[in-house]
């Protein structure tokens, strides 16, 4: 037996069973091989169900299970770390004709992936708020902020925050189609998606790349800097402060 043949038949039910597999009397293995087929696909569909609770609500359990099975067969995991399985889901959804009328699904998948990455990201201790307060205003532009490893930025042309809240917290669904950007923060162990002030995402993205506050402000247009900073501080997202001269 070659494991390549075994693997191919596991994921493609239209293929014949690999040769040389038998029952105790030497007859073809039949249903015995299907135990493995079933174990593989059921367990991986379960992993996707756990990973994408909002997608499940949006498309319904039955549809999600059928779609997840197609996803599993097209994109089996590339790593034994199933906690991060599903990174192909946004692209899969974007190309899956039965959901082409729900164009926000790929962004919801990206949000759910980012929440899981945040959950498993490294711990970090935020800087004391008085360290931030102690920075002279004239120095602020030259400061670089190190952001928490669990911070994630998810940008969308769709109201993904409102959709997420409506499905996870039983709030009413969004009434208007507006672009929403989400900042995921994890003050302790539970990642929380926050709606970012409009226009703040380029600023956060630049900070995350290690740009100075001045450069990050230049990268963004008008946005509510105070509200954005308050969010970063309350979510424990700033874990170190470096001045320009040390860079």
């Amino acid at each position: 037996m070659r494991q390549a043949d075994f693997r191919a038949a596991l994921l493609d039910p239209s293929r014949p069973h690999p040769p040389g597999l038998t029952d105790p009397q030497g007859r073809p293995a039949g249903r015995r091989f299907n135990v493995y087929r079933n174990n593989v696909t059921v367990s991986l569909v379960e992993a996707l169900k756990t990973a994408f609770p909002v997608l499940r609500k949006l498309v319904g359990e039955e549809f999600f299970a059928a779609m997840a099975l197609e996803h599993v067969r097209a994109h089996p995991p590339r790593s034994p770390l199933l906690m991060l399985y599903g990174t192909d889901m946004p692209d899969f959804l974007a190309r899956f004709p039965p959901v082409s009328h729900l164009p926000y699904l790929p962004d919801i998948a990206r949000l759910e992936l980012a929440l899981r990455e945040s959950y498993h990201a490294a711990d970090a201790t935020p800087v004391a708020p008085d360290r931030l307060a102690a920075i002279p205003p004239q120095d602020l532009a030259n400061i670089r902020l190190r952001l928490a490893p669990a911070l994630r930025l998810v940008r969308s042309d769709w109201p993904i925050h409102a959709i997420w809240v409506a499905n996870m917290k039983e709030a009413p669904p969004p009434r208007t189609v507006t672009a929403q950007d989400i900042l995921i923060l994890r003050p302790e162990f539970d990642p929380e998606p926050h709606l970012l002030p409009q226009g703040a995402a380029p600023f956060i993205a630049a900070l995350a790349e290690g740009k100075t506050i001045g450069t990050a402000l230049d990268a963004a247009g008008d946005f509510d800097l105070n509200a954005t900073f308050a969010l970063l501080v309350s979510g424990g997202a700033i874990i170190d402060i470096a001045t320009e001269t040390s860079a």
Partner: peptide, 8 residues
């Protein structure tokens, strides 16, 4: 198999 993890 070939970097694919089959979870069984």
């Amino acid at each position: 198999h070939d970097a694919e993890f089959l979870n069984d």
